[in-house]
């Protein structure tokens, strides 16, 4: 997982499937990101989660996505999820993640 802040956008990219087997590591990285002073002090207004390299998200992976979206929710920022896979589009819609983030299918 990598992140950067550009203008008022916190950009977070995950270049892998978000699955139970790798989610512990992702949560650790998310905690580190939450404590990053630059992330805390910067005035970003949009969180962009790049999942264009992801092909599958399972239930624990969805819980991880929820945690990331909460990061935006906490500061009343906009959230956007970028995906490429149509199956993920379906998954995020029927789990109603699209009500909490704009889902953009490239």
């Amino acid at each position: 997982m990598e992140h950067r802040i550009q203008h008022d956008v916190l950009y977070v990219a995950i270049r892998q499937d978000v699955l139970s087997t790798g989610v512990r590591d992702l949560f650790d990285k998310l905690h580190a990101l939450q404590k990053d002073p630059q992330v805390q002090q910067s005035s970003w207004r949009t969180l962009e989660l790049d999942l264009t390299g992801t092909k599958m998200i399972d239930a624990m992976g969805l819980n991880f996505i929820v945690q990331i979206l909460k990061l935006a929710k906490e500061r009343d920022a906009k959230a956007k999820i970028l995906i490429q896979d149509k199956n993920l589009d379906r998954l995020l819609r029927f789990t109603r993640m699209n009500e909490h983030a704009e889902v953009v299918c490239a």
């Binding site: 399972d58 239930a59 819980n63 929820v66 945690q67 979206l69 929710k73 789990t95 109603r96 909490h100």
Partner: peptide
């Protein structure tokens, strides 16, 4: 029924199966 309603961390596995 609506697990993402409040962005709660819930057991989504069975919801995925059902859906």
């Amino acid at each position: 029924a609506r697990p993402a309603e409040n962005l709660g961390t819930v057991h989504r596995g069975l919801q995925l199966i059902d859906a």
